[in-house]
Design a protein around this nucleic acid. Structure first.
Lengths: 268, 268
DNA sequence: CGGCCAGTTGATACTAGTCAACGGACGTGG
DNA sequence: CCACGTCCGTTGACTAGTATCAACTGGCCG
């Protein structure tokens, strides 16, 4: 297993939510995240240009580093930690539109303002790129644009599934879908997305699949369009039905994948 | 006003849902839709290549021409008519993820299967491109890819708004948001998206803004995650509140934009 | 004319939201 | 050390917003 925290170089003295220093030219060459991210679209020989425009940024847990509606000046690439993306209504209701982990690219938008907010769920490390410079890179490297298009297409597909979930699924179906979407995610986020069905993650003599839930009930609720009470009740119900086992500290073990899959109602 | 049905050439003898003949090399040069679509990313001098790989296709109202889960062999560009895009559950519940009008590009996906279905709402004319050939075009013309990325980014933003709507808005808020999204759409779809604020929202002496609704109540319901009854009741309620006037044959006039906007709850 | 479909409206049911109480984990400070 | 407060999660009682079921209308077309 490679370096679990691939992005640690500089000292961490910063004040505002967003600050930081530019990377060294050779930075990206050794970045463990590159392989999983859009940066892989740039060859070794050109990657120094990318490195030099990347600003190292650290965001503390709970801090909002993209404000919905603020001028969209930067793109971001998550190099460590997890981020929640959301939209909100004036009265405070909010919808989490997605979770972004290591390797995820943020900030795609044609508009000059961010259409969503982003908040760090844990300590997050980011590469920050100005949009202007990023556009130059895209001009010079069409492969980068292709990679972004692929990323956007995947997100679009995910968004469509989420619309089906939010518009048409019941609370039980939503929670089941949510758990299944996360089966196979490594407990250590960002690594090992191989999703090998083989011996899977720690099945052993088969106790079921572990599902890491690095988010609170409130986050799950805001993601599924439910309340925390409903999420809690639904998980409790699944436990009494012996479909899952609820462990300490944000961990759930799926013990009846088959019934969960039926519940989730695979798409037609 | 230019040719309202810019894509009429060949005779219409066809049997299957999808068939058709390849375009003539000069076709795209005169296509009135080109300016509004991804095709504008290709210069006049190169557009013949695109024309030659485009297959003219007509789809009758109500026909599904993209089947969810089917092998994704083609991209489409809508040249006339309106399309609804949707995902469905095995038991028939369905969520319309979007409406696509003239100029809209369909089929973006990395997967080898369509993630959504598409059905003609009226008589639809399409340019159909094989994915393989389209990929060649993208290789040769990075501008095309850039244009597609912009298109995808916009759809992503729209999808996020829709998630907020589906997850967190009440029925009244959903219907209000839906109507407002369509204010300014020309009654004749595909033309005049200028959204000229010129004469204001035509208030003033003013009868209000016309909102064309070329879809049934069932479609609206499936788009908003509601039932047809709730949509009907909500529109009726808005009428009694004098926020809208309901005309014959799928037309609604917004008579109190301001109250509708408050209802829709502008995003934070 | 009769059948069908889209839409409206009413009565009732039910899912999930709201309000509230409680327990455990954790951190702080006496 | 323990008392205290806070945050997160669970559970219960009740409510409200939509869904469901059903009846009815008007338009369209064979």
């Amino acid at each position: 297993m490679p370096d679990p925290t691939p992005c640690q170089r500089e000292a961490p003295p910063r004040r505002a939510v967003l600050s930081g220093l530019h990377r060294q030219p050779g930075y990206c060459l050794t970045c463990g995240v590159r392989a999983h991210s859009v940066c892989s679209a740039i060859d070794d020989q050109d990657i120094a240009r990318l490195a030099e425009m990347a600003v190292e940024t650290t965001v503390l847990p709970g801090r909002t580093f993209i404000e919905e509606g603020a001028p969209a000046t930067d793109f971001f690439n998550v190099t460590a930690g997890n981020v929640k993306l959301f939209k909100a209504l004036p009265d405070g209701r909010r919808q989490i539109t997605g979770f972004a982990g290591t390797g995820h690219f943020l900030g795609l938008a044609v508009s000059d303002r961010y259409a969503f907010g982003a908040e760090a769920m844990d300590t997050v490390r980011l590469c920050r790129f100005s949009r202007v410079r990023m556009r130059q890179m895209m001009d010079d490297f069409p492969r980068l644009e292709r990679r972004l298009l692929a990323e956007a297409s995947n997100e679009l597909v995910a968004a469509q599934s989420q619309m089906l979930l939010l518009g048409r699924k019941t609370a039980r179906e939503r929670v089941a879908s949510f758990l299944l979407d996360r089966v196979g995610d490594a407990p250590c986020p960002g690594q090992d997305r191989s999703r090998g069905q083989g011996q899977g993650q720690s099945q052993g003599l088969n106790q079921g699949q572990d599902v890491p839930l690095p988010m609170t009930r409130a986050d799950i609720a805001d993601y599924l369009g439910l309340t925390i009470e409903t999420v809690s009740r639904t998980l409790s119900w699944m436990r009494t039905e012996r479909m899952i086992a609820i462990g300490k500290g944000h961990a759930v073990r799926v013990t009846a994948m088959d019934r969960l899959e039926i519940l989730a109602g695979g798409e037609a």
